[in-house]
Design a protein around this nucleic acid. Structure first.
Length: 344
DNA sequence: GATATTTGACCTTG
DNA sequence: CAAGGTCAAATATC
């Protein structure tokens, strides 16, 4: 167990260092007349590294959770995460179970509200293809299933589920699964006709393909972190936004420019433009299948709600200890941890 | 004709 | 066995 943990820690550190190095490269790149493609490539690498790091953290969380507490609940978790799709590293952390949950996945949930009279959820920058719809027993509205349009051509396994909110029919709960391996910046964002022009007027949820100008849309993200009990899995989009913006936006004109497009949000939770999934902190359930789903709250939290069992605390290391200089590391650990009430 | 959506059937999981 | 998730044939749209 110790060795496993040590391995995870090493892997995490490696990913963070990798992300930092690529960030440096990007920084250098910005001072040169470099191509947008190469910058995008570097950016993707950075995001990938951070994703993997988060995956590792979450895997650790789940392992811890599975060994500690279970809080049975009659309600399924709003956020449930299986395992990570991000890299073989995380795969290596998986144990067992041939259940469906073993399918590498992570999920996150955002609430999208359309204002200004625009119909349907906004376009999130990716190109989705609907592959199913299902009436959910306890839900008033059916759930629609989408997968990345580039699943076939690029093997992108990202999927999402869209369900109209019962409390607010103008809102949609969107659960993302898997990260895009297609390049949104190159392909999907130049939305193919499939998304933009083939929209059919009928029927509830799936009309979310309708793609009005993103400028005309605002996205209200479910304040998942509003729950009093938080763990790592409780980071919200807004947290992540904060995180990401603190990482690079303020200092990087390139990324700042991206933020002004569909890629990144610089808005607050009060009026968020959509933050694409790649930039969100994902809610991980990590490797372990929780036999007992938590309450809704705990479900959202995803990981267990005990600070003592919270993985981020178990994961006892500091950037300094591995020779990472805060000033170089845009991923402000203190800032990150400060997102969690008990982490002071 | 190519591509997207619909929808009933089937599969997997708990 | 029930419910959620996915498949795939039929259908619609461009």
């Amino acid at each position: 167990m110790e060795s496993e943990k040590s391995w995870e820690q090493d892997a995490l550190i490696n990913e963070l260092i990798e992300g930092m190095e690529v960030a440096r490269k990007l920084k250098e790149d910005l001072s040169l007349p470099s191509s947008v493609d190469s910058r995008n490539s570097l950016l993707q690498k950075i995001l990938s590294s951070y994703d993997k790091a988060l995956v590792i953290l979450k895997c650790n969380a789940s392992i811890s959770n599975s060994q500690t507490i279970h809080q049975p609940s009659p309600h399924p978790p709003l956020l449930s995460v299986q395992t990570s799709p991000l890299g073989e590293e995380a795969e290596g952390l998986k144990h067992n179970s041939k259940k469906r949950k073993m399918t590498p996945k992570w999920t996150e949930q955002v609430r999208v509200t359309i204002e200004n009279g625009v119909e349907g959820p906004l376009h999130d920058g990716y190109s989705w293809r609907k592959y199913g719809q299902k009436d959910i027993l306890s839900a008033k509205y059916p759930r629609s299933y989408y997968r990345c349009t580039f699943r076939k051509t690029k093997g992108c396994c990202a999927t999402k589920q869209v369900q109209r909110s019962e409390e607010d029919p103008n809102a949609f709960d969107i659960t993302y699964r898997g990260s895009h391996t297609c390049c949104k910046g190159n392909d999907a964002v130049v939305t193919p006709k499939s998304e933009d022009t083939k929209e059919k007027p009928h029927n509830n949820v799936e009309s979310h393909h309708a793609k009005p100008s993103q400028d005309s849309l605002t996205v209200k993200t479910e304040n998942i972190t509003a729950h009093p009990l938080t763990s790592f899995g409780c980071m919200t989009q807004d947290n992540h936004h904060t995180l990401f913006s603190s990482m690079v936006l303020e200092n990087d004109p390139f990324l700042r420019s991206l933020s002004q497009t569909s890629l990144l949000s610089t808005n607050t939770a009060e009026s968020n433009y959509f933050v694409p999934p790649s930039f969100l902190v994902h809610e991980f359930d990590g490797v372990c299948n929780k036999p007992c789903p938590d309450s809704d709250v705990a479900g959202i939290v995803s990981a267990d709600t005990s600070a003592t069992n919270s993985p981020i605390f178990d994961f006892n290391f500091s950037l300094h200890s591995v020779g990472i200089d805060d000033s170089y590391f845009p991923f402000n650990a203190c800032g990150l941890l400060s997102q969690f009430p008990k982490c002071t």
